[in-house]
Amino acid sequence: MAGPMSVAKLMNRLELNRESVLLIRNDTLVPGDAMLEDGDVVEVRPVISGGAS
């Protein structure tokens, strides 16, 4: 996707629930208002886990 774009806008566009994922850039968390630029590589890491034990 083309930047610049805020993290919140990216999550909306990808229809991600902010409770279910973390966004990580260069091993660092990026908050919702951070701006992403062209060339940024961002990991969308799911956080939901676990079976019913």
Binding site: L22, I24, T28, V47, S49
Partner: peptide
Amino acid sequence: ERETAAYCV
């Protein structure tokens, strides 16, 4: 769950 994941990162 988001907070424990963030804590680990």
